[in-house]
Every structure is written in structure tokens, then in C-alpha cells.
């Protein structure tokens, strides 16, 4: 699990990685949940122990009698019931309301209008296609890579993923980055992440999709920006030599393949 405090202090101030958001909420829930669990279980065990049958006769004890119409115990214990119920309701609702606030941020991701565009590197949108049994990544320049997603490091950029599937229902998930999206044929689900730290992150499939579900792994490689740029340009040259027809079609669409946006050579 990632260190709670390591991230989220290097990018624009209100940008937090999904991982950081998750860790915070998970931590809060875990603490409160464990506390509640321990208290309730202890309370229950205490009751069970305290009121065990010791064999001592008790005149005031009025047990149910065989054949009586089932009634309840409508005494003072009912009040305790409502107090406990009320407390637990308040607790549960508060927890969820708290997490809801962060949900709105996670749904959209960081917005782009922080500072001017020139100050930080561009964001990138990748089309992700799940298939039996791997992942296709299509970059803005049209290049398609299988199973490996390379992105440039940068704590002030956002990588958005548009996820779909070509055959059956998969689920694209990267545990270390705490991101996930269903990969459904005919549908486009989105998620995003901030490539803050260089490294390799494992992609796994989280929805049973057939014979190779267990091995449907991939990787996200966050690489230094200049290495990425070099590789990215290389993909365009490779595509040009590989397929002239495609290249001619692309020449007419320079805005789409990102050639004009590179500013950091």
C-alpha cells in the first residue's frame, strides 16, 4: 500500500492522485469500522457472559411459556434499542456523506484550468481496449501499443483513460495507482491518474472474461519525460515506415495526432 503522505504535495495544490484519495478514505473507514466492530462485538460478548444461566433461581424471571401468542419485550430495553440504532445510523450516514464529497473529485479528475497551459506539460488521453486476453492502448497520434502503456512522468499532468472492450466484459485495474474502470463492449468508461512517480505498475483484469482471465496482465511504465518524447516520436516514424497509406491519411489531420503540440524537444 502506498505511503499516505508521500504524494500530493508536488503538483498543483488541489490535485491529488486517486491513490491518495483512496488511502485517506480507506484509512478513516478502517479506523472507525474497526472501532465500531470491536465495541459492538465486545458489548455483545459482555452481554452473553453477564447474563449466562448460572442455575440460581430467580423469582422475577418471566420466561415465555409454550403456546403463548408470540409477543415481544416492550419494556425499557426498547429505548436502548433506539439510542443504539440512532447512533449507528448517524455514524454510517456521516461516513458516506464524507466520502461522497471526494467522489465528485474522483469522478472528474483534476480540471485543467490551473495556471496557463505553458506552465505545465500537456495532459494525454489514451483509448484503452480490453480484449481476450490483453490490452490495446491507442495514443493521441494513432499509434497502438499492446499490453504496455508508456506515459511521461509529471506531477502536474493528468492521463485520462477511455476504456472499452472489443469482445466481452473486462475490468481494467491498476492496484498500485488505485484506478479501475469497467471495460464493456459498446460502452466507454473513464478513469484518470497522475503519473507522479517513475516506475512500472501492474495492470490486471478484474472481471472474469474467459480462459486467459488470470493472465491478462499489462503494465504502465511511467518514464522520464524526455525518454518518453523520444519514444513517442519514434512511434510516428515507425508507423510511417510501416504503413504509408495511413500516414498520408494522417497528414491531413495534424491537429489530431499531436505533432503540433510538442513543445519540449
Amino acid at each position: 500500500m502506498m505511503d499516505l503522505f508521500a504524494l500530493s504535495h508536488t503538483g498543483p495544490e488541489d490535485w491529488r492522485a486517486q491513490a491518495a484519495v483512496f488511502e485517506e478514505i480507506f484509512f478513516v473507514f478502517l479506523v472507525i469500522g474497526t472501532l465500531v466492530g470491536v465495541i459492538v462485538v465486545a458489548y455483545t460478548l459482555y452481554h452473553a457472559y453477564k447474563y449466562r444461566d448460572t442455575g440460581k433461581p430467580d423469582e422475577s424471571f418471566e420466561p415465555p411459556i409454550l403456546g403463548e401468542l408470540p409477543t415481544g419485550d416492550e419494556g425499557p430495553k426498547s429505548r436502548k434499542l433506539f439510542v443504539s440504532f440512532g447512533l449507528s445510523a448517524i455514524l454510517v450516514i456521516s461516513l458516506v456523506v464524507y466520502s461522497y464529497g471526494l467522489l465528485l473529485y474522483v469522478e472528474q479528475g483534476p480540471t485543467d484550468d490551473i495556471g496557463s497551459d505553458a506552465e505545465h506539460a500537456e495532459n494525454m488521453e489514451i483509448q484503452v481496449e480490453g480484449f481476450q486476453f490483453g490490452w490495446n492502448f491507442e495514443y493521441p497520434n494513432g499509434h497502438v501499443e499492446q499490453d504496455t502503456l508508456r506515459v511521461p512522468q509529471g506531477d502536474d499532468r493528468v492521463i485520462r483513460l477511455n476504456v472499452t472492450a472489443t469482445d466481452v466484459w473486462h475490468n481494467f485495474g491498476v492496484t498500485e495507482l488505485r484506478i479501475k474502470a469497467d471495460s464493456i463492449p459498446g460502452q466507454y468508461a473513464t478513469t484518470w491518474f497522475i503519473p507522479e512517480e517513475e516506475g512500472t505498475y501492474l495492470i490486471e483484469c478484474f472481471e472474469l472474461c474467459g480462459l486467459g482471465h488470470s493472465d491478462m496482465d499489462g503494465e504502465i511504465i511511467v518514464m522520464p519525460e524526455d525518454e518518453f518524447d523520444e519514444w513517442y516520436e519514434g512511434t510516428m516514424e515507425d508507423d510511417e515506415t510501416d504503413d504509408d497509406t495511413n500516414d498520408e491519411a494522417n497528414d491531413g489531420n495534424e491537429d489530431d495526432d499531436g505533432t503540433d503540440e510538442e513543445g519540449d524537444n
Binding site: F26, V106, D182
Partner: peptide
Amino acid sequence: VFLGAIVLDYEFRGT
């Protein structure tokens, strides 16, 4: 209750 909090469910999904 953890699973009911959508942000947590996003990560718990399929695990």
C-alpha cells in the same frame, strides 16, 4: 458499509 462508499468500491471492485 465500506463497499457502499462509491470511492472505496471503485477499488474493491473485482477483488
